[in-house]
């Protein structure tokens, strides 16, 4: 296995919320202690329901926001609170593709200008002619035609825009690409095109992907490893195979059982979770999943479980036994 390009240790990101009159200030624990590594050529998928801290994780890893606590080590270098400002090489290492292809492209810039901007800002030594050549090459690489170079974003469909967004992210030849739900705003048929493009590019450029999604069928298709987040905390992390076939954490199992399967003959037992995601301002005591868990024990309401296990880790006091998961 090749060496890790990014290591995150106990990453936290908290937001302070001003309380106002007669209300104390509160802390939103959007991301509360995530640890993982990214390896070149491999994809780590991050899954979880809305509000579980997936996008916050993306922003921290992309160095848009500094982590409140914890270490982020990229390419052997520890990232300080100043992020990547003033360091062009570091900036070029991590790039991001956003969820909404309609909001992520500047409507006043042609596709060519959008693609050339990262080079202009980070590689001033590259001549204007060379810049344009590289941008045109990249356009071809993501499957767009040369005449698209001069056009504006409003002339493109969602799938084409997302290709442009991918092309822009790759202009600086990054090592890590953060994909924040890159296909959830697209049609199903376009989704697979973009996913195949992403997998193709990963192979060609040996990229490490941090793939954020709530769509488990997409994750099953693209991921090597899966990290399950619940309320900003990782509850289970492991190889795709292990997570999908033998989930140990009840939340992962519930999440998997909610995935629709295109087989009417197969009647799957769906686990319905009670209640809502608790507020990240006011987390329950002990395991944060305990109010919704059907395997709750006394210890769950008191002691916070630690991630345990090798390779396939999970944070649960009463994990689903292996034989039971295999039966399901």
């Amino acid at each position: 296995m090749s060496e890790a390009i990014l290591t995150a240790k106990n990453l936290k990101r908290h937001y302070e919320v001003k309380g106002g009159f007669l209300k104390p200030d509160a802390t939103v624990r959007a991301l509360d202690g995530a640890s993982f590594t990214l390896t070149p050529g491999k994809t780590l998928a991050v899954v979880g329901e809305s509000g579980s801290g997936k996008s916050t994780l993306a922003r921290v890893v992309t160095m848009i926001e500094p982590p409140t606590e914890g270490d982020l080590i990229i390419g052997g270098r520890k990232i300080g609170p100043e992020g990547a400002s003033g360091d062009r090489d570091l900036r070029a290492m991590v790039q991001i593709v956003f969820q909404d292809p309609y909001g992520s492209l500047n409507p006043r810039q042609t596709i060519g200008q959008t693609l050339m901007e990262p080079l202009l800002l980070n590689r001033p030594e590259v001549s204007a002619a060379e810049r344009e050549t590289r941008a045109r090459d990249m356009l071809a690489m993501v499957g767009l035609r040369p005449e698209h170079f001069e056009r504006y974003p409003h002339m493109f469909s969602g799938g084409q825009r997302q290709r442009v967004a991918v092309a822009r992210a790759l202009m600086l030849e990054p090592k890590i690409l953060v994909l924040d739900e890159p296909v959830s705003a697209l049609d199903l048929s376009i989704q697979s095109q973009v996913l195949n493009l992403l997998m193709d590019l990963q192979e060609r450029m040996d990229l490490a992907y941090l793939f954020i999604s709530h769509d488990l069928s997409v994750v099953r298709h693209i991921a090597d490893e899966v990290l399950v987040l619940y309320l900003g905390q990782p509850v289970e992390i492991g190889p795709k195979q292990a997570i999908f076939e033998a989930p140990r954490h009840p939340y992962t199992k519930a999440l998997l059982s909610a995935t629709p399967v295109a087989d009417p003959a197969l009647r799957k037992e769906r686990i319905k979770l009670e209640g809502e995601l608790p507020s990240p301002m006011n987390k329950p005591q002990g395991c944060s999943f305990n109010p919704r868990c059907w395997r709750r024990q006394d210890v769950c309401t008191k002691v916070e479980p630690e991630l345990q296990g090798q390779g396939h880790c999970f944070a649960c006091h009463n994990p689903i036994p292996l034989d039971e998961t295999e039966a399901a």
Partner: peptide
């Protein structure tokens, strides 16, 4: 607050 502004920041815009 739109994504393209964040994208410009990630691209290294001052």
């Amino acid at each position: 607050s739109k994504d393209y502004v964040i994208a410009a920041r990630v691209a290294g815009g001052r």
